[in-house]
Lab assay of single mutants.
Amino acid sequence: HNLTITQGKLFFHYNPKLCLSEIHKMEEVSGTKGRQERNDIALKTNGDQASCENELLKFSYIRTSFDKILLRWEPYWPPDFRDLLGFMLFYKEAPYQNVTEFDGQDACGSNSWTVVDIDPPLRSNDPKSQNHPGWLMRGLKPWTQYAIFVKTLVTFSDERRTYGAKSDIIYVQTDATNPSVPLDPISVSNSSSQIILKWKPPSDPNGNITHYLVFWERQAEDSELFELDYCLKGLKLPSRTWSPPFESEDSQKHNQSEYEDSAGECCSCPKTDSQILKELEESSFRKTFEDYLHNVVFVPRKTSSGTGAEDPRPSRKRRSLGDVGNVTVAVPTVAAFPNTSSTSVPTSPEEHRPFEKVVNKESLVISGLRHFTGYRIELQACNQDTPEERCSVAAYVSARTMPEAKADDIVGPVTHEIFENNVVHLMWQEPKEPNGLIVLYEVSYRRYGDEELHLCVSRKHFALERGCRLRGLSPGNYSVRIRATSLAGNGSWTEPTYFYVTDYLDVPSNIA
């Protein structure tokens, strides 16, 4: 807008934040220059609390790290170098490059900038070799853009010569660093050979998330399962459950009422301010606690030095998902009996873990797994792929695949051998790939016309006998059925096997 004052003059007093240069501009645009008398524009009460600059400061050096910015700028000295009290560095987070010096300023003089007072450097006698002032900004957020400017702080001049310097606002972004852990990993099994893994992005990506790394490792069953005799009275049979499938998407929606109208769909109840505040506090606490764990609990591995020492970490090797089922080394339970199943799973520490690289999504279907087997899954978020990966501390989750139908069934015939004193040795093959492992066998036998009897055969007993022995049988026709019990439950009964026990007292003698 054009402003013209045809008559009258300007009068400025007691404006401590208004620089004289701005008042002189007002004289020019209003056409009143030359009308004012000496005392109409006070030299001592206008701009006496402001830094009124008329020179431009330029930054000469900028260096960044993930949490620091090192700045240096060209030296500046007023005509009387004693008038320079120091520099004021202003900075704040700036997602967009549209910041002005006066953003967030209120009537009390406060604003949204963080201000650092910096002492002037030592003055050199040689004007050509003056030290460049600077400042190291610490405690910054990774991968965050900051708006920065600097200006001088000078003393009051009796001659009211307006001098000083100020830089333009520059924008500097800190470097990326390792992201925080992925949030809320959930693993479920939808079949006997697959596990579905879902997660949420890290709360602090500290860069642009480029991919996720998912490692999985087959877990050995508890050692007590191999040692305890679950045929003993009072000892509860062990059981394991597989990871249940995901709930429906509708039930997972946030901010939804727990109660549904019987007449149909209901609208979600909005969260109160107290609920939102509580969630923010919980989120802040979780982030602080995660940072504490990362800094205190997890110790970084030592990389190899120039002395030739090897990095103890196993090298990563990509495998196809079809090879995942046989990740671990199978060892027989008892070496003397080769027909026992290889369900003991000690994992070799030198073995390469299978892994998958996930790009542009937060889910993965891990296939080719062994049925009813526990897996430990390790999830890392990465925001750099080359020249070397920059990934987060791992988040861990466990899951067990679903049982395989008929995996616990005894394959092959049940054979028998009759000894003296009416002892019958029953023999059968253990299931080759049971659900988890076989903890015991149930032997059901009966003599024709009598009630059915049951015998429990422990895992250890089966390994020693290759089956079991029935003792003290009365003469007669017998039928026997056997079924295995694994961590997933009972298998199917075998087809009945028949044998006849004679009275050993009636056996004919070869003595003449």
Results as ranks from 00 to 15, higher is better:
R240Q: 13
P349S: 10
L232F: 08
E378V: 09
T415V: 14
H425S: 11
P244W: 14
T373K: 05
R319D: 09
N435M: 01
L321D: 11
Q219H: 13
R376K: 08
Q256W: 07
S479N: 08
N421R: 14
E465S: 13
G476H: 00
E282M: 05
R469E: 07
S223M: 14
P238M: 05
R400M: 08
T340E: 14
V414R: 02
E420F: 15
R316Q: 09
L232H: 12
T340I: 13
L455I: 13
E389H: 09
N295G: 05
R353P: 14
E433S: 15
V334W: 12
D311L: 10
G308F: 04
S474T: 09
G472S: 09
R313L: 09
L237C: 15
H461N: 08
E351D: 13
D229S: 06
D385R: 10
Q380H: 15
H461L: 10
R459Q: 10
S257Q: 08
Q252T: 11
H461A: 07
S344H: 10
G306Y: 07
M427V: 06
P245I: 12
Y396Q: 03
S444V: 14
S367E: 06
F462R: 10
A399M: 07
S283P: 02
G322S: 09
R469W: 06
R240S: 14
H352R: 08
R286T: 02
I482S: 01
T307I: 04
P496K: 15
G436F: 11
G472M: 12
K287L: 02
V296F: 04
S341G: 09
R319N: 14
A395I: 05
R459G: 12
S458V: 06
T386K: 07
L235C: 10
T272Y: 04
C231I: 02
L505T: 14
R447K: 03
V324D: 03
H461F: 11
G234T: 10
C267F: 05
D229Y: 13
P496S: 10
F337R: 13
T401M: 01
F462I: 04
T272K: 03
R471T: 07
P245V: 11
K271Y: 05
G264H: 09
K233S: 14
A394H: 15
I418T: 12
N326H: 10
G322W: 11
Y292I: 02
E227F: 10
H294Y: 06
I276M: 04
V358M: 15
L369E: 02
W242P: 15
L237D: 10
V439H: 09
E260T: 08
Q384M: 09
N510A: 15
T485E: 05
V411C: 14
V297L: 04
N421Y: 11
F298I: 02
T502F: 13
D409L: 13
P338I: 12
K233L: 13
D229R: 01
T307R: 14
E281N: 00
R353M: 13
S268C: 07
N490V: 05
A330M: 06
V457T: 03
V214E: 01
V329L: 09
L464G: 10
E378L: 09
H425E: 11
E247L: 10
V297Q: 01
V480R: 03
R301N: 01
S262Y: 11
T401H: 00
L455R: 14
S304E: 08
S367A: 08
A395P: 03
V443F: 00
V296S: 11
S243Q: 08
L470D: 00
N477F: 15
N435G: 02
Q256D: 13
E282A: 07
R466Q: 06
A399D: 00
H454A: 05
H352Q: 09
F462M: 12
S320I: 14
V439C: 09
L225M: 06
Y212A: 04
S304Q: 10
C269Q: 04
T386Y: 00
Y396S: 04
E290G: 04
F372W: 05
G467E: 03
T485M: 05
K236L: 08
S342Q: 13
G412Q: 11
D250L: 10
V501H: 08
L232N: 15
P496F: 14
V411S: 11
A381I: 02
N435T: 00
P238Y: 06
F355S: 11
T502K: 09
R481E: 08
V329K: 10
N490T: 14
T502Q: 07
K236N: 11
Y504F: 11
E495M: 03
W216Q: 12
L228M: 07
C269S: 03
V297Y: 05
V334Y: 13
G467T: 03
W242H: 12
N255G: 05
S274T: 09
D229T: 05
Y441R: 02
E417N: 05
D503Y: 15
S251H: 14
F337P: 14
S239V: 14
E350L: 12
A263W: 02
K357W: 03
C456T: 06
I438F: 08
E404L: 08
I438E: 00
R390N: 04
L440Y: 07
Y448E: 05
R469L: 08
M427R: 10
S320V: 13
F419Y: 14
S479A: 15
Y396P: 04
G234W: 07
M402I: 07
V345H: 10
S203V: 04
S315E: 11
N422M: 08
L277P: 01
L228T: 05
K460H: 10
G412L: 10
Y504L: 11
D229A: 05
D250I: 13
M427Q: 05
Y396T: 07
P434L: 01
D311N: 11
V331F: 07
S492Y: 05
A484R: 02
L369V: 09
T401Q: 01
D409I: 10
Y292G: 00
D323M: 14
V480P: 02
I209K: 15
I366D: 10
Y500K: 11
R400S: 08
N422F: 15
L437W: 15
F499Y: 04
L321H: 10
F246D: 06
E417Y: 04
G374C: 08
T340K: 14
S474W: 14
H294A: 04
N477M: 14
E362N: 09
K361M: 10
V359A: 14
S341R: 12
A309V: 12
F298T: 06
P244H: 15
D229P: 00
T303F: 06
S486W: 00
A330L: 03
S315Q: 10
I482E: 01
P387W: 14
V501E: 01
V443E: 00
T343R: 10
D291R: 03
E356L: 11
N208V: 15
D291T: 01
A220S: 11
N339C: 07
V507Y: 06
E282N: 12
G322Y: 06
T497S: 09
K406E: 14
G306H: 00
R370V: 15
P346S: 09
S444L: 06
E388I: 12
D222F: 11
D385Q: 12
S268I: 13
E350G: 09
D311H: 14
S243R: 15
V365Q: 12
E265R: 11
E430T: 06
V414P: 08
E310L: 14
R376L: 11
D385A: 13
K361W: 10
E442Y: 14
S392G: 01
V423R: 15
H461E: 06
T210H: 04
K432P: 09
P245S: 10
Y498M: 15
I276A: 07
F226Y: 08
V423L: 03
V424G: 03
L464T: 14
Y448H: 07
F462D: 02
G264I: 07
E389D: 07
L505N: 11
N295T: 05
Y212L: 01
R447C: 08
G368P: 08
Q219L: 14
Y448W: 14
V345L: 13
S284G: 04
A336R: 05
A394W: 13
R390H: 06
P270W: 03
E362A: 12
S342M: 09
E310V: 04
